[in-house]
Amino acid sequence: MRTKASLFMSCSLALFLVGCGKTNPMLEQHPDFIGKWQSDHDTLVIEKNGQVEYRHKETEEKQTAHSDVEMSSRSDLKASITQFDQKQFQIGQGEFGQVFRIDRAPYQQNQHWQMQLNGQVYTKQ
C-alpha cells in the first residue's frame, strides 16, 4: 500500500513540475520577451509561464527660490499576461492592469538585448 501511495505522490509531483515549466501559450510566439528587463525607471520581469512583475519608480526634483523639493512615486504590479499581439501586451485587467505598447520588439544591439515599450528602452539583464 505504501508503494502505491509513494508512486502516486511521485507521479503527481512530476506532473506538477512539468506544468510549472511550461511556456504560456501567448508567449510561445514571442519567446524573446521572456526575462528580466530594466529601463531608467522600470523593472519588468516576464516569466515563461506568463507571470509578470512590473516595478515603476520615478523621482522628480523641483527647485524654487526658497527650497529644493524631491518627489518620488513607486508602483508595483504582479499579474498574468491577459493579452499579447504584435502591437501590445497587457498584464492584469482594468485598474489593476497595465498595457505595454510595443514600439520595438526585442533586438540585439552591442551584444545586449533591448526592446522599446511605451517609449522607454529596456535592456535585458
Rank of each mutant, 00 (worst) to 15 (best):
Y122L: 06
P31F: 01
K36C: 01
M71Y: 15
S72R: 14
M26C: 02
Q111C: 05
V121C: 04
S75D: 11
Q88Y: 04
P25N: 04
L15E: 07
M9K: 12
S73M: 07
Q98R: 13
S10K: 10
C20I: 07
G92M: 08
K62A: 08
R74K: 14
E53L: 10
S6Q: 11
L13D: 02
N110H: 07
H41M: 14
D103I: 05
C20R: 08
L17S: 08
G94H: 03
Q38T: 06
T43A: 14
A5K: 12
M26Q: 12
R101P: 00
W113L: 09
K87L: 09
N24P: 02
D42C: 11
K78M: 08
D85A: 06
P106V: 00
T23K: 10
K48E: 09
N49A: 00
A105G: 08
D32K: 13
G19S: 15
C11K: 15
G97C: 00
I102Y: 05
L77K: 03
A105I: 09
M1F: 10
V52W: 00
Q86A: 13
D32P: 02
N110A: 09
Q63F: 08
Q108H: 12
T64E: 06
F100T: 03
D42P: 01
R74A: 11
K78D: 10
A65I: 13
W113R: 03
L13W: 06
G19E: 10
E28G: 06
M9H: 10
D68Q: 13
W37G: 00
L27W: 00
E53F: 10
S75N: 12
R74V: 05
Q90E: 03
Q125K: 13
K87N: 11
M115P: 07
E60A: 11
M71F: 14
S73P: 07
F89E: 05
M71N: 15
V69Y: 14
K87E: 10
R74W: 09
I81F: 01
F16G: 04
C11Q: 15
L117F: 06
G92D: 01
Q108E: 14
K78F: 09
H56N: 13
Q109T: 11
T64Q: 04
M71P: 10
N110K: 03
N49L: 01
D40Y: 13
K87F: 06
A14T: 11
M26V: 07
Y54V: 01
W37H: 00
H66S: 14
Q83T: 08
Y54Q: 02
S12M: 09
H66R: 14
G119T: 08
M26S: 06
L117T: 02
G94Y: 05
Q120L: 02
A105W: 03
N49P: 00
S73K: 13
S80Y: 07
S67M: 12
I102M: 03
Q125T: 13
H41I: 15
G35L: 02
L17T: 07
Q88G: 02
S73T: 14
E60I: 13
Q86Y: 02
Q90P: 02
